[in-house]
Write a protein that binds this DNA or RNA. Structure first.
Lengths: 231, 231
DNA sequence: ATCGGTCAAATTGTATACGATCTGTTGCCT
DNA sequence: AGGCAACAGATCGTATACAATTTGACCGAT
């Protein structure tokens, strides 16, 4: 076996950024968790300098909050933030769909179908890690669709939106996703394959609506004291 | 005169980031210009540490390119990038418009009208600084519209898109903006005021189309050697 | 004269050192 | 006992020092 996982030689800001990002999106790091520069640096055997860079980058993505002179914490998105994220997805994703459909090839469709099969397989599994993998696979469908647009700007926006959505789903999801989420991806792909873009768009919007509807966004949750006390 | 411009007391990463950003968007820094960490640091009387943070942030926004071991350069967007930026705006801005219209108040409309008057005033002026101000005012209309949505995620996306658009317009614009660009903002606002959202959306799309149509995006320009030689 | 290689200057990459700020605790005073 | 102030530990913010890399110049060989 390689030693890559525990003893990677080339640790740079980017590597750390992605490692933390994955951990957050996979919910191995709980929202609110403090990410001390010294601790993270020790973990990766690098100085605080590189860690700071990674944390700053993640704060631009909205995955961590950095509080001045207090440190960085895994983001704990408020219900309001969650709503904004999904509102933005509703605006963008129909366009993504249309643009992706213009470029899509039969080979792309095969790849997407394969992803959906993998997703379905995971759905059968039980346990927390399966649920993580399911959330991830669900996001990957949207990201792969986006990659077909060959639009780097859009890709970055969607990367951020999907990552933050994962966090929100993990926080507020009521776990009915399994039942509704999956068919919808297949239906969307079907509509694209049949060039029925109008239907595909409609399905996409409904899909996003359903994901958001599965969330429990009633104000109080975790740490939003400021909101709770109307400060 | 005040010494604020040359001797500000509180210089932090954010301040530097905004200063450079403004300079790039205003085109006081030409695309391709090298931003040496030491030089910038000397200018603001800070160490390279803060400058690096600012440059990294700007690279996430797509306003500067950081090349490993070579330094940071003011972005020189390729025609392809320009197309992607405008394609993305076409996807997002109709949604922005709809959402903004839902929240808009008479007072907001007054503010927007005031902005448009200012814009029109600048249009009368001549010279490079007037053109800069005009490009800026033109972007501000879109940003102010976005701010009405009260959606922070969206706001950040639009901030980036508008900033990069300014760069692209400065680079590839053929300066016919004056004639077409302005009426369109007024027309859009009119349509919003009359609650004719369908018309407002259509006008917005056309507006973006017109801006892009005014660009000269034929491949070769400046430094895109890789493209030029098909590497 | 041109090509190739070696070397020096300049610039970035990373680590470390030091100062500033926050947090929690201790102990005194009322 | 309760509250306030001073202090100590920990953590972040910034600057500086040193290592690694790039770039351009010089110089000798073909």
């Amino acid at each position: 076996m390689t030693t890559a996982a525990t003893d990677p030689i080339d640790i740079d800001t980017q590597y750390i950024r992605e490692a933390i990002r994955d951990a957050i999106v996979d919910r191995r790091l709980a929202p609110g968790t403090k990410l001390s520069e010294a601790d993270v640096g020790a973990l990766f055997h690098v100085s605080r300098t590189l860690v700071r860079g990674a944390l700053q980058a993640l704060s631009y993505e909205g995955l961590v909050n950095v509080e001045k002179n207090r440190g960085a914490f895994v983001a704990n998105p408020s219900p309001e933030e969650a709503r904004q994220i999904f509102a933005t997805r509703r605006m963008i994703e129909p366009g993504v769909l249309m643009e992706a459909a213009r470029h899509i090839t039969p080979s792309d469709i095969q790849h997407l179908k394969q992803l959906l099969m993998e997703e379905r397989r995971l759905m059968g599994e039980r346990g927390q890690s399966a649920r993580r993998a399911e959330i991830k696979a669900s996001g990957d469908f949207h990201l792969m669709l986006t990659s077909l647009t060959k639009n780097a700007v859009l890709q970055r926006f969607m990367d951020e939106l999907v990552a933050r959505s994962s966090l929100v789903i993990a926080l507020y999801g009521q776990s009915a996703i399994s039942s509704c989420g999956h068919h919808e991806h297949e239906d969307i792909l079907d509509a694209i394959e049949k060039k029925d873009l109008e239907r595909a768009c409609k399905l996409m919007i409904h899909h996003i609506d359903h994901i958001e509807a599965d969330l429990d966004l009633r104000a109080e949750k975790g740490s939003e004291l400021k909101e709770a006390f109307r400060l």
